[in-house]
Structure formats: structure tokens, C-alpha cells
Simulated assay, not measured.
Amino acid sequence: MKKEFDYVITLRRPDAVLFNFISQLMLFLSLLAFVYTAIYAPKPFGYYFAIISILLIATWMYARFFSKSEYVSYKIPLVIAALGWLYEAGVYKLVAVLLGVAFLLEKQVKFAEEIGFDSEGLTFNSFPSKSYKWNDLANVVLKDGIITLDFRNNKIIQKELDSDVSGDLEKEFNEFCSRKLKEQHA
């Protein structure tokens, strides 16, 4: 059952340049290994498997290179490369595991974090999710595209929002938080 929130704030998406670079490097090295396998494969099946992997990854990379999209996902080629490495014998299966881990981590690394606010408190949609009750907080303020969470234990979290918020919505949100904090501290 999905929880309903009064307000959901989307935070700025994290910079994934390093993760993208590592993914591209792993895919490039995989392509080189598959080309080597295609040339020197002792079995015909290995040759065809390597050629198919090369074509699929290279086609995907070519399409992404000319894409104007801001968000780039490497999930499909990482899975193809992992399957290609699974075919290889010996310790190369470890490379397949590393590519599989990169596949699993990509969504979490590139995911824009959200904070949901309701009558009970607030919840971060991170993995694992973090929830706080209103009585854990001293103050919550949304101003100029920055959310500030001031905790009673002197911990402060400030995060930049993904998009601009209108003045009216900012005022409404701040009043909601102020009212919930007063109810808890009364």
C-alpha cells in the first residue's frame, strides 16, 4: 500500500558524471574483450556470442552519443556486457558480477531524492528509506529553492530543490510545517 503525502519535494538530481564515466569505461573494455573473443574464439558459438554482444553494445552507445537527453541510463548495455562476460571461462565471471552490481546501483546513484511530508512527519525515499517524526524536528523551512531541516539534536540538512517553487506554494508549505511543529511541541 502506497502512502499518501500532503507535500512531496523533489531534490536536485545528483551529479552522475563519475558513474557514467565508469560505466562507459567498463563497456569499452568489454567491447575490446569481446572483439578479442570474436577473433580468437575456439568455438563458433563464442564467435557469434561475442559479435552479437559487440553489435548490441556498440549500437546502444552510438544511439546514446547522438541523443540529446540529459538523463542517460546504462542498464541495457551493462546487462548485455555482463551476459557476455558470463560466457567467458574462469575468473571473468567476477567481471560479470561487477557489471551486475553497476546495473543494480545505477538507479540509486542517479535517482532524484524526494522528501514526503504528511501529518506524521517526513520520509526520504532513499534506500533504505528514512523517516522522521515532527517531534524530531525543531524547524522546517523552504526558501529560495532550498529546503532546510533543523533537527532537535542540532543536526541540519539543507538540500537544493530540483525546480523552482512559486511563492504561494512556498508559503503554504512553510505554514503547513509550522503548524505541524507547533502541534507536536505544544
Rank of each mutant, 00 (worst) to 15 (best):
F49T: 10
I51R: 00
I51P: 01
I51K: 00
I51D: 00
I51M: 06
I57R: 09
I57T: 09
A58T: 15
A58H: 07
R64G: 01
F65D: 00
F65P: 00
F65M: 04
S67L: 01
S67M: 01
K68Q: 11
K68D: 14
E70I: 11
E70S: 13
S73T: 12
K75A: 14
K75N: 10
I76N: 08
I76S: 11
P77Y: 00
P77M: 00
L78I: 03
I80T: 15
A81V: 11
A81N: 12
A82N: 08
A82L: 09
A89I: 08
K93E: 08
K93P: 00
V95L: 07
V95M: 08
A96N: 09
A96D: 08
A96C: 11
L98H: 09
L98P: 05
L98W: 08
L98T: 10
L98N: 05
L99S: 02
G100H: 10
G100W: 09
G100Y: 12
A102D: 06
A102Y: 12
L104H: 01
L105H: 01
L105V: 03
E106P: 08
K107G: 07
Q108W: 13
V109R: 05
V109C: 05
K110N: 14
K110M: 11
K110D: 10
A112M: 06
E114I: 00
G116W: 03
F117A: 03
D118G: 04
D118R: 05
S119E: 15
S119R: 12
E120S: 12
L122Y: 05
T123I: 02
T123D: 01
S126F: 02
F127G: 01
F127M: 15
S129G: 09
S129H: 08
K130Y: 07
K130F: 07
S131F: 11
S131P: 06
K133W: 00
W134L: 03
N135C: 05
D136I: 04
D136E: 09
L137Q: 08
A138D: 11
A138I: 03
N139Q: 15
V140A: 04
V140Q: 04
V141D: 15
L142R: 08
K143C: 02
D144S: 14
D144R: 14
T148I: 07
L149S: 06
L149Q: 06
D150C: 05
D150T: 13
D150K: 13
F151C: 12
R152C: 11
R152G: 10
K155R: 10
K155G: 05
K155T: 12
I157F: 10
K159Q: 14
E160T: 15
L161F: 02
D162L: 12
D162F: 08
D162A: 14
S163T: 13
D164R: 13
V165W: 08
S166G: 06
S166H: 01
L169H: 06
L169P: 00
E170N: 07
E170M: 12
E170I: 07
K171I: 01
K171F: 06
F173D: 03
F173Y: 06
N174T: 04
N174H: 03
F176M: 09
F176Q: 10
C177K: 04
C177F: 05
C177S: 13
S178N: 12
R179M: 12
R179W: 10
K180W: 03
K180Y: 06
K180T: 02
L181I: 03
L181R: 01
